[in-house]
């Protein structure tokens, strides 16, 4: 058994917004059951790249992606790829907690329902409970599943969104600055959750919080102006990076 199995193989990816190139020739391998952090200054393309992994960029007309991204050896940039299937395999958690204005239960059940993943109500109940448990939220909300998902605290909302993402049983979870709107305690909970989740999922997290990247990830990729500057073990990146640009960024020396 290979210890570090490749989950996502990103090869020669370029992203254009109209005529503006946002990502330049990025090669990257995301390992299975690890947390990979993307760091870099605003506008460096880290979120753009993240959104390539579930083809969220398709929502933007002028966005063109080239190169190849292999998810378990299937090129997800293939035009003929079934986006619905891809997005059930690659879940996403966003910067601001964005639960649907529905009940907590319906929020989690949303994905399984629209994909018809459950035969009957009891199976759906099971999926909802399992997802909420995985997201570490079950004990806090089990008595109020019918209350609106927007009524719980920000940290709980974000974990609800994580539960919603894992309810469709994905392989990969993308997190786009998942803690930027949360207080430190809620942040710590989500980080703890990430450690728990990586046993079953591959996690890619975009973050502006360097300490967070250092805490939660095994691998870190540093982007600058659309280029992948450095990619390596998190410990090395944060103690002795190879590139001056990486060092300047993580030590707060950037212009």
């Amino acid at each position: 058994m290979i210890k570090e199995q490749t989950k996502l193989d990103i090869d020669n990816v370029d992203v254009f917004y109209g005529k503006k190139q946002a990502i330049f020739n990025v090669d990257l391998e995301i390992k299975k059951n690890q947390v990979t952090a993307f760091i870099g200054p605003s506008g460096c393309g880290k979120s753009t790249l993240l959104r390539c992994f579930n083809r969220m960029n398709d929502l933007i007309d002028i966005c063109k992606v080239s190169g190849s991204i292999l998810l378990d050896s299937v090129n997800i940039l293939d035009k003929k790829l079934d986006l619905v299937r891809l997005r059930t395999k690659v879940g996403m958690v966003f910067q601001k907690p964005n639960p649907f204005p529905k009940s907590i239960y319906d929020n989690v059940a949303y994905g399984p329902k629209i994909h018809g993943l459950c035969e009957d109500i009891s199976e759906l109940d099971e999926v909802v409970e399992k997802s909420l448990k995985s997201a570490g939220l079950w004990n806090e909300v089990k008595d109020r599943l019918n209350e609106p998902g927007t009524g719980i605290s920000g940290g709980q909302q974000q974990r609800l969104c994580i539960a919603r993402a894992i309810a469709t049983n994905p392989d990969v979870i993308l997190m786009d600055e998942p803690c930027s709107a949360l207080d430190p305690i809620a942040t710590a909970r989500v980080e703890e959750l990430m450690q728990e989740l990586k046993k079953n999922y591959t996690i890619i997290v975009v973050t502006h919080n360097m300490q967070q990247a250092a805490r939660v990830s095994e691998k870190t990729a540093f982007f600058h102006l659309g280029h992948l500057i450095e990619f390596g073990n998190t410990e090395e990146i944060f103690t002795s990076p190879n590139e001056i640009k990486t060092q300047d960024y993580i030590t707060g020396r950037f212009g």
Binding site: A214, I237, F238, T239, S240, P241, Q247, T251
Partner: peptide, 10 residues
């Protein structure tokens, strides 16, 4: 205060 990284930490 600064939570130093990389060279600062070293």
């Amino acid at each position: 205060k600064r939570q130093p990284m990389a060279v600062d930490l070293r």
